[in-house]
Design a binder for these strands. Structure first.
Lengths: 252, 252
DNA sequence: CTAAGTAATTGGCATAGTCCCACTAACGAG
DNA sequence: CTCGTTAGTGGGACTATGCCAATTACTTAG
């Protein structure tokens, strides 16, 4: 069953490094989107083959590092992201790594976890995965309704926590929207992630004085006053605000 | 030379997971201390044996994950920390992981990087490493004067950057001091890490209203007015301030 | 054509933490 | 006692925010 050759020596001093039995190395990706004012995460169903661990359960998209194909860990994460969503250049950030002897029944394993933000209109759930084994789940609290495979519930929890804390002082939510959006749409996105309301005036002045957006000539019409459309100035990395939302001097 | 059995199949659909050749898995630890108003990092010299990569160069303390001894990644990091410094319960936090095909000449490798803050009085450079192959180096900018092995210069750079950014809005520097310290000593520690001065008044009111410290009866005497000594209230995890230092409304 | 309805956007004021700077307090040395 | 030094406090100016209300720009019902 073992793919590695277990010939670790017990000699502590003159141990040859390559004698160590190697842990399994995987990459998992937590893919977030906001759809209909709800924060959602993309999950895939594990094969029902009983020879696989956690057959039929939902899990984060991921898999083994393929040292022949993946130049580095991030490339591996991007590959898995593209395989599932077809998205090419999303926001992608490393969350951390988790490794221990018990998380995978196949042996000591370490997973490198990334999290990604995608705009809902950019995602086409791809060919390979038919609709029944790849699905969006709404985040409730910091979990989803389903029981997840492996330790993915805690990975998800960590990802939600990191997302929420970064949203407090960055422009991250803009990566969850299409290229052009209104300030109100952006605010609703913040609110969907943070699960609380923000002050309209403070939100607007903050975003507009930070010089992260620029207005486009068109406006978004509807049954009422049309809203100014904006675009992100640099759509690669988020802007860091000097202080988090809702931490005014006037607030104890 | 290979410890793993390279029998990866080229078949993309029915690939057996355990057929993947496994990357090397290591853990590295960036150990920080402030000594004499300078931020320093602990490095070890690699063996001069030419069969090892980067012989004789300085590197971050670290090594292969030992799946027989290490319950999880953090335990592995703690083990390496204890082996080098004798410190038992320091501040330890994961920084992230780096993995690619080129960073280690022995093959595709991934390292899990932790960073740790230790109080200088708690450290005794231990037995195993004699003074010539374990040493503190002063951080200059975000590097040290020496050329480091592997990609450790960029790992160090990332660690310094993370430390600096967290110091802006947490009580982390308190973990670099002995149990009892004065507010001025704490402020000097902040300043040593950030490499800039902070406002005395703002610093004091911030720390004291945050309820992270408590005064101890003794005071620290000297040739001038004695200073109040304080201790950390919870010495396990740092306090998060509502906003970073130096981001007053009165500052554009 | 007008009034009502709705969402976008702006105005105005009190608040409270920071910055800046100066002042007072406590101690040893000479 | 005076001087030098460090600890610690006082007070005013500044400004992003919270809060609330007013104004603007539309569509649609009547």
């Amino acid at each position: 069953m073992k793919a590695t050759t277990p010939r670790k020596s017990g000699d502590k001093q003159a141990r040859e490094p390559l004698d160590f039995e190697r842990p399994l190395s995987t990459v998992d990706v937590v893919i977030f989107a906001v759809r209909g004012s709800a924060l959602q995460v993309l999950l895939v169903r594990r094969p029902s083959d009983v020879s696989d661990p956690y057959p039929g359960l939902w899990a984060l998209p991921g898999g083994f590092v393929d040292i022949a194909r993946d130049r580095d860990l991030e490339a591996c994460a991007l590959r898995k992201l593209r395989e599932k969503t077809g998205v090419d250049a999303p926001y992608l950030e490393q969350l951390g790594s988790w490794g221990d002897s018990a998380r995978d029944p196949r042996g000591w394993s370490a997973t490198h976890v990334y999290f990604s933000l995608v705009a809902p209109d950019a995602v086409g759930l791809t060919a390979g995965g038919n609709a029944t084994d790849t699905r969006w789940f709404t985040i409730e609290g910091d979990l989803v309704e389903e029981t997840l495979a492996f330790d993915h519930a805690s990975l998800l929890k960590a990802a939600v926590s990191r997302l929420r804390s970064k949203v407090e002082y960055t422009s991250l939510p803009a990566f969850l929207l299409p290229q052009e959006f209104t300030l109100t749409e952006l605010q609703r996105t913040y609110e969907a992630i943070l699960d609380r309301t923000l002050e309209k005036k403070a939100f607007r002045t903050r975003l507009l004085t930070a010089d992260v957006l620029y207005p486009v000539p068109r406006r978004k019409g509807g049954a009422n006053r049309p809203a100014q459309l904006y675009r992100l100035r640099r759509r690669r990395q988020p802007h860091l605000f000097a202080r988090p939302f809702g931490s005014a001097p006037g607030v104890s």
